[in-house]
Design a protein around this nucleic acid. Sequence first.
RNA 1: GUGGCCGUAGCUCAAUUGGUAGAGCUUCUCGUUGUGGUCGAGAAGGUUGAGGGUUCGAGCCCCUUCGGUCACC
Length: 382
Amino acid sequence: MYRFEIQQKSKKSKARLGVLKTPHGDIRTPSFIPVATLGVVKGGLSSEETSNSNVQCQITNTFHFLDLDRVEQVNKKGGLHKFFNFNKPIFTDSGGFQVFSLGKGNEFGLGKIGSIFPEEISSTESRKKGKNLLKISQRGARFCSPRDGREILLTPELSFKVQRQLGADFVYLLDVCGSPLDNYEEAKKEMDISHQWFKRFLKVAKTKQKVFGIIQGGVYSDLRKESTKFVNNLPVFGIAIGGALGKDKKEMYKIISDINKDIDWQRPHHLLGIGDLEVMEKIIELGIDLFDCALPTRIARHGSALTSRGRLNIKSGSMKDKFEPIEKSCKCPTCQNYTIAQINFLFRAKETLAGKLLTIHNLFFIETYLEKIRKKIAQGKL
RNA sequence: GUGGCCGUAGCUCAAUUGGUAGAGCUUCUCGUUGUGGUCGAGAAGGUUGAGGGUUCGAGCCCCUUCGGUCACC
């Protein structure tokens, strides 16, 4: 049922054209995976509307489902596909990212690609917010629910159980997602705990679902090397690159290049959490087959449209008389039916339709863009 | 015509006993990367209707004037 077929390998780069076959259909790779935190893409899209935005698949979040306490309910209905009427492939993240996003990320206002560094922490300490990650131990990650404050202990065993009940096509090992602030010792400790958790996860993972392993190690190349070899040796279907990716895009590319020396090239590669339009071509050239990111849909809700001229702030006052589609050549439902001025009006009127229309456009735009990239690989141009 | 009220940022309004003007919205810029948060950060923007007076000092007090508004003739 499951297979990753590499149809063509680039001679100019490490890019490859592939098909990821699943019980819910094929994913043509390289592919973007939109984030559907609680089973649906944020911004008010139905599963049908998401599908009509040309997306090939989506990724849902284990931790937030656990927090919401609705895993059993979804399981009774037969899993995410049936519950949300989404019949394309679904991935579920393990919750490992929340170890970072609700921990140090939340505490210091950080992202995966760091913008703030240790020497600057004191000046940014005022940005501290509520701490939702209580403790990471060998046993698991102890959280304080951002929703109602109760304690949640996420263990590899629980992460698997939840992911099995949600019934996605692909599940992810529970890891400790590192922070750009980590020193060598911290990054090593997080990697070691991740590796232990991986073994525990796989010990209980009796399922037809396919598993992705996750390479940790932060910005430290020897740790990345060690983790890459460790994950290569696991009986996992695919390999993801997780954790902190340096202080800028250049460092991120270097980390991926380092990993590329050891990674198994037969399996699909997923770069976790990166999906900025500006980096897509480059990461694909570095051999990435799958990548997911909250950004395209988030900026849509915040008023930015992806275009061939770069990001366009649709909310801006200068957009109120632009009676033309966001992208003239775009075939998405938004561009076919609405102009910039109309969407600008809806944003100003605080109508949620505005964010929804941009979300549809951004998703469609990315898929159209990737279709061109796939074509370039097929023609040997990339 | 007479009397009252009002005139402060593009808009709606603040400013304790007179101590040299603030906020929200708007505008612009930037950020967001395995989505707690349709959100965060920053900037721009004022001869306080105009003119004069009192005072060390006036958005505030006094006079004149212009504009708006309400009531009554």
